[in-house]
Simulated assay, not measured.
Amino acid sequence: MATKEPREHLLDWLRDAHAMEQQAETMLKAQADRLVHYGTLKARVLQHLEETEWQKAQLEGCIARLGGSPSALKDLSMKMMAFGQAAMGMAVADEVVKNSLQSYVFENMEIASYTVLITAAEQAGDFETRDVCQQILAQEVAMAKWVLDHLPGTTNAFLTRSAMPGMEAKV
C-alpha cells in the first residue's frame, strides 16, 4: 500500500469539503426558494447560504495554494445528491420539519469535517488553511446551534399551521 504525506490527505479532504459545500449550497438554495411561511428560518438559511458561498471560495483558495483544483466529479456528485434530497423533501407533508432535521445532521457532518481538516492542516504545516478551516468551523457550529435552538419553534409553528383547516404548513 502506498503511503501518503499529510499534505496529500489534506488536499483530498479539502476537495471533499468543497464538494460538501457545493451540496450545502444546492440544498440551501432549494430550501430558501421553497420557504414561504417560516420567515425567520428563511432569513437564517439565506444568511448561511452567503456563508457557504464564502466558505467555498475560501476552500478553492486553499486547494489552489496546495497546487490542486476542486474535483469536478465530487462536486457534481454532491450537487446531484442535494437535488435528490430536495426532491424527496417536496414529496412529504412535513417538509419544513424534515429539512430542519436534515440541516442539523448536515451541519454536524460539516463540523466533523472541518475538525479533521484543522488537524490535518496543522500536521501538514499549512497554518493558513488551518485558520480558514477554523473560521468555517465557527460558522458551522453557529448554524448547527441555531437550527437546534429553533427546532422547537419550527416544529410548533408547523404543528399549529398543520392543524388549521386550509392552512399551508409544509413550507
Results as ranks from 00 to 15, higher is better:
M81Y: 08
E95Q: 14
L49G: 02
K145E: 08
L117T: 07
G68A: 02
M20I: 06
E107T: 10
V105E: 09
L66I: 07
G125A: 03
W146E: 12
M20F: 08
D16K: 08
A86D: 14
E21C: 04
Y114W: 01
A112S: 15
A43Q: 13
R44N: 14
A24T: 12
S69G: 04
Q31G: 10
E122N: 13
A138I: 00
Q23Y: 05
P165L: 12
A91P: 02
D126R: 05
D94L: 06
I111D: 11
T154Q: 07
T52K: 01
N108M: 10
R161Q: 09
M164I: 11
I118V: 13
A57S: 03
D12W: 04
A144M: 05
A120R: 06
E95I: 04
L66F: 08
L35W: 01
M88V: 14
R161A: 15
H37D: 14
A91L: 15
T52S: 09
L76P: 02
N99P: 00
V96K: 05
S162R: 14
Q102R: 06
T129S: 15
A32I: 11
L14F: 01
K145D: 09
H150S: 12
R65H: 02
E50C: 00
K29S: 14
A169V: 04
F83Y: 07
S113C: 12
V36Y: 07
V97K: 05
V171C: 11
A82Q: 03
